[in-house]
Design a binder for these strands. Structure first.
Length: 611
RNA sequence: GGGGUCGUAGCUCAGUUGGUUAGAGCGCCUGCCUGUCACGCAGGAGGUCGCGGGUUCGAGCCCCGUCGACCCCGCCA
């Protein structure tokens, strides 16, 4: 070892000891007679001291060292005459006797500090320098801790980690596949897995009844701050279980991680049906760190599927499928024509100025949200009301509305109207915005919940067919199986999502384990028997050899790390992420390949695509 | 596929109505300084204003195109 200690561990206990440290020069301070160097490694920073008295030559050499030079320094640990209590090693310093420059460094393009002056692009181009920064290092360490603790929990629960292949078969369902040409099989392609879904099901058939894998997955879709083309899942599957068993097992995992990674004890996770999540939050991944639930002033009753039939144990009570109307008959066309009139009550915002209200309206009219307008009702402190629809609704009406919202004087009611789906979605955005404005979305507070009973299928207007909302291996709820033939849209899935702070952390389902039902499902999705057999025959064949009932879940590992780290972006939790366009600007990929490589792969590029 | 923000010194940014020699902070270089720790002080270097075209007596600023970065919608079973 070149060093005896790290830069983070020396203290007053080590006074007088001769030590050798290795690290990078964070900064040096030349005082004329003395020079100080902050030496940094993964573990911390230790100050090196050089004095012109006695060691003028050495001190002179030290003055010439630049930022990020790699140094090996040997000297005696001494107590500082003026201490820096801001850092753990601030009571000592190394009186250097000799040092070697292990490597020089160019001037880095940005400062290696928590508050770096580097912009996104520079940081990604020189990611190896960015990773030297404390803030990023902490994220990468958090990620490591997450994977260690995940494995600890899963192993203790009797799960075994099994690796599944990366070169698999392309299927048209779901996201676009990344595709890999096969040299040995001209004209044919592998696909990279979007998830190890079918393999883990085959492991269940094989009798490996508790499987997990921390595994890379690939999806060729457009990126976001929380979406990368390659990302990591905690992929899990169990046999001989019900939904309840899975929820309990993985609520256990989540609680274990909360405790061992974040040091937080969390209560049992609330559960909410998809239907209620949409009704009360306009989202299937609600942020329940704050209330501000939707209140409907007019609704046509139940949506086509899902009435929250499991009601009773849900804390999210409320009229399910009620037909209500507190708005019609006053000639306000916007409300009269609307399928849904729904709003939220922002506590203490009754004093909002005209400017603030206009701002909110503009926010809602942005093309990304696309609301046509925003109705407000201010609940004045004297018990009167002021609304943007005073012309149509008198005090009596507004009072009735306020009562429905349980609004207090000083509150602000914000109302949207229109088509049910769009209006809920838009109001969800507004709810999040108001949550932000009111400081109700503290990243250090965690509100996990399960969302259950998703619809099994989604109708696509363009292609005029059903798509699996989760994936085509998801089992319908047993009582809804007959609906596949009569009313597929109403069928609910035996599926569930884990949501933390409005972020979808994971999702899973009880799977289909019988060939007949799998065939029926694929048929509902528009597959012919031949297509079903050619694409998923391997799975259905396996089901004929004693497939056990099974189910599982997969967690977005990067997102979970980001949520635990208090960030909305997953990039800083991935050592080498890709940019918006799926490029790695450090290694400059993707890139063109040689004609020889193309020839070997039997690939001819379309004209105009040659680079 | 669409919407938005942005591109000026190594880095982060300012730059008014189109008008003289394009600025600041940080960083960098030189000098001074024996207890700093975001050291301080003095001085200095550093610019194809992303790229191409256009309008104009004159463009960092206006127009057209193009490239790139970031955020969002669509998409992501």
């Amino acid at each position: 070892m070149l060093r005896t200690h790290t830069c983070g561990e020396l203290s007053l206990k080590n006074i007088g000891k001769k030590v050798t440290l290795c690290g990078w020069i964070q900064r040096s301070r030349d005082m004329g007679g003395m020079t100080f160097i902050d030496l940094r490694d993964r573990y911390g920073i230790t100050q090196l001291a050089f004095n012109m008295d006695g060691r003028a030559v050495l001190c002179g050499k030290a003055r010439a060292l630049g930022r990020e030079y790699v140094l090996k320094a040997t000297g005696i640990v001494i107590e500082r005459s003026s201490k820096n209590l801001k850092i753990p090693t601030g009571e000592i310093e190394i009186l250097v006797e000799e040092f070697d420059v292990l490597n020089e460094s160019k001037i880095p393009p940005f400062t290696i500090e928590d508050n770096t002056d580097g912009g996104e692009e520079q940081r990604m181009k020189y990611r190896y320098l960015d990773l030297r920064r404390n803030v990023i290092k902490k994220n990468i360490e958090l990620r490591h801790k997450m994977s260690v603790e995940t494995r600890n929990y899963m192993n203790a629960q009797g799960f075994i980690e099994v690796e599944t292949p990366c070169l698999i078969k392309s299927t048209p369902e779901g996201a676009r596949d990344f595709v890999v040409p096969s040299r040995m099989n001209a004209g044919e392609f592998y696909a990279l897995p979007q998830s190890p879904q079918t393999f883990k099901q085959l492991l269940m058939v094989a009798g490996y009844d508790r499987y997990y894998q921390i595994v890379r997955c690939f999806r060729d879709e457009d990126l976001r701050s929380d979406r990368q083309p390659e990302f990591t899942q905690i992929d899990c599957e169990m046999s001989f279980v019900t939904k309840e068993d899975i929820l309990n097992t993985f609520e256990g995992l989540a609680k274990y991680l909360f405790k061992n990674v974040r040091g937080i004890e969390v209560n049992d996770f609330p559960r909410i049906s998809y239907a209620d999540a949409m009704k009360y939050y306009g989202s299937d991944k609600p942020d329940i760190r704050f209330e501000m639930k939707f209140v409907e002033l007019k609704s046509s009753g139940s949506s086509p599927h899902l009435g929250g039939l499991e009601g009773g144990n849900s804390p999210f009570e409320g009229g399910k499928g009620d037909v209500i109307d507190l708005t019609s008959g006053k000639n306000f066309k916007v409300f009269d024509d609307a399928e849904l009139v729904v709003g939220i009550c922002a506590s203490g915002c009754g004093e909002y100025s005209r400017k603030q209200l206009d701002e909110l309206t503009e926010f809602m009219k942005r093309p990304q949200i696309g609301a046509t307008g925003l109705v407000y009702v201010k609940c004045n402190n004297d018990g009167t009301f002021k609304s943007s629809v005073d012309k149509f609704y008198n005090e009596e009406y507004l009072k009735k509305w306020a009562a429905t919202f349980q609004a207090k004087p000083g509150d602000l009611i914000l109302i949207l109207a229109g088509n049910t789906e769009k209006t809920r979605k838009a109001l969800c955005e507004l709810r999040i915005e108001m949550g932000n404005r009111l400081g109700l979305r503290n990243p250090d507070i965690f509100a996990p919940l399960w969302v259950t009973d998703f619809p099994l299928l989604e109708w696509d207007e363009e292609t005029h067919r059903f798509y699996a909302k989760h994936h085509p291996f998801t089992s319908p709820k047993p009582e809804d199986i007959p609906l596949l033939e009569t009313n597929p849209a109403a069928a609910r899935a035996n599926a569930y999502d884990l949501v933390i702070n409005g972020v979808e952390i994971g999702g899973g389902s009880i799977r289909i384990h019988k060939k007949d039902l799998q065939k029926k499902m694929l048929k509902t999705l528009g597959f012919t028997d031949e297509e079903a057999q050619s694409q998923f025959g391997f799975l259905m064949n396996a089901f004929e050899y004693g497939a056990p009932p099974h189910g599982g879940i997969a967690f977005g590992f990067d997102r979970w790390c980001a949520v635990f780290g208090g960030s909305e972006s997953i990039r800083d939790y991935i050592a080498f992420p890709k940019n918006n366009a799926g490029r790695d600007i450090m290694i400059d990929s993707p890139s063109a390949i040689s004609q020889q490589q193309l020839d070997e792969l039997n690939i001819r590029l379309a004209p105009g695509n040659k680079k």
